[in-house]
Design a protein around this nucleic acid. Structure first.
Length: 292
DNA sequence: GGGCCCGCAGGG
DNA sequence: CCCTGCGGGCCC
C-alpha cells in the first residue's frame, strides 16, 4: 500500500521546473507516471497534472476547473463515453474536497493556458478542491468536474472567492453541484476528523457525500484576536456543520464535565487519544456562550 | 503538428 | 493476473 505525502514537500517551490513526468515522479511530487490524478479512493488525491489530456479543462491560474479521468480516447484526446465518480482518481479528488486536503498542481507543456511552460512541467503550488459537479463536456458526454482554488502561501484564510464560471458550451446543464463551506484545515484538524471518522462528537451524526465522510474541526477558544486561542487538539472538537456553528455562535457550550449546555444533547463523546484543556471550555462559557 | 506503439506503475 | 491512464519516442 502506497502512502501519499499531502501538501508541501521540502525543497519544492512554486515555479520549479521538471523536464518530464519521470522527474516529477522521482521528486515525489506525482508518483504515477501517466495518470493525471495521483491518489486513491481511500486516502485522497495528493497531486494532479494538467497536460492537455482533456478538452474541458479550464485554467485561470488561481482557479482551475479540472476534468476527472475516464471515457477518453488516448489517440484523439476526445471523450468517447461518460465518466464516473466511482473511478479511482475521481473518487480520490472527492476525498480531497471533503477532507480539505491540499492538492499539488503541476502544469505541462501540452496544457493550453497562460500558466503552462513551453517545455517540460512546472510546479504550480497547492490548491484546495472547493466544489465538484457533473457536466456535459464539449464532446457531449458526462464529465466529472472539480473546482480547485489556490491556497495562497502563508495564508490561513480560505481561498479567494470564485472568479468566474467555466466556459462550458451553450446547452451544457449542471446535473448536480456540491459547494461546501470552505474551511481551511490544518494537519491537526484533518487528523482529528479522521480519528472520529467524521462523526460529530455532540450528536453522533456522520454525514456522507457519495460515501465519503464529512465533518468540521471546531475551535472552542477561537483563534486570533481578541481571543487568541491555540490550534491544538485540546482546543478542538470534531463536529457536524450545525453544531460547529452553534458552538462558534455561543448557542451551546460545555460544562467542566463535558456536558452540553444549550441543546438537546447531553454529553460530548471522546476517543481515548483526545482530551480537552478545561481552560478552553471555561473561556468559551465565559466569553462566547450566550446565556439567554 | 498528428499517428502509432511500446511502455511503466498502481490497483483491483 | 489483467486493466487503465493528462508518456514519450519515433516516424512521417
Amino acid at each position: 500500500m502506497t502512502t501519499y505525502i499531502f501538501g508541501a514537500l521540502p525543497d519544492l517551490e512554486e515555479g520549479d521546473i521538471f523536464p518530464n513526468r519521470k522527474a516529477l515522479t522521482e521528486a515525489g511530487i506525482h508518483k504515477v507516471l501517466m495518470g493525471g490524478i495521483d491518489g486513491n479512493p481511500r486516502q485522497g488525491a495528493s497531486s494532479i497534472v494538467l497536460n492537455g489530456g482533456y478538452v474541458d479543462d479550464f485554467d485561470l491560474g488561481d482557479e482551475i476547473i479540472y476534468t476527472g479521468h475516464g471515457g477518453n480516447d488516448p489517440n484523439t484526446g476526445r471523450q468517447i463515453k461518460d465518466q464516473s465518480w466511482e473511478s479511482p482518481g475521481n473518487k480520490a479528488l472527492l476525498v480531497s474536497e471533503l477532507h480539505a486536503l491540499p492538492v499539488r498542481v503541476t502544469r505541462g507543456y501540452k496544457h493550453h493556458s497562460a500558466f503552462s511552460p513551453k517545455s517540460g512541467f512546472v510546479y504550480g503550488g497547492l490548491y484546495q478542491v472547493t466544489e465538484h459537479f457533473e457536466d456535459r463536456g464539449k464532446d457531449g458526454f458526462l464529465i466529472c468536474r472539480y473546482r480547485l482554488q489556490k491556497i495562497q502561501p502563508g495564508s490561513t484564510m480560505p481561498p479567494e472567492p470564485i472568479q468566474s464560471l467555466p466556459a462550458g458550451n451553450e446547452d451544457s446543464k449542471r446535473q448536480t453541484s456540491t459547494v461546501l463551506r470552505i474551511v481551511r484545515d490544518t494537519k491537526l484538524s484533518r487528523e482529528l476528523k479522521a480519528l472520529y471518522d467524521y462523526t460529530c462528537q455532540i450528536c453522533g451524526l456522520r454525514i456522507t457525500i457519495k460515501g465519503i465522510g464529512y465533518a468540521e474541526a471546531a475551535h472552542i477558544k477561537p483563534l486570533g484576536k481578541p481571543h487568541n486561542g491555540f490550534d491544538k487538539a485540546d482546543n478542538l472538537l470534531c463536529l457536524c456543520p450545525n453544531h460547529h456553528v452553534m458552538l462558534d455562535k455561543g448557542i451551546l457550550t460545555l460544562t467542566d464535565e463535558f456536558e452540553v449546555l444549550g441543546g438537546e444533547y447531553e454529553k460530548v463523546t471522546f476517543k481515548a487519544d483526545h482530551a480537552l484543556d478545561g481552560e478552553n471550555i471555561r473561556y468559551h462559557r465565559a466569553h462566547i456562550f450566550i446565556n439567554e
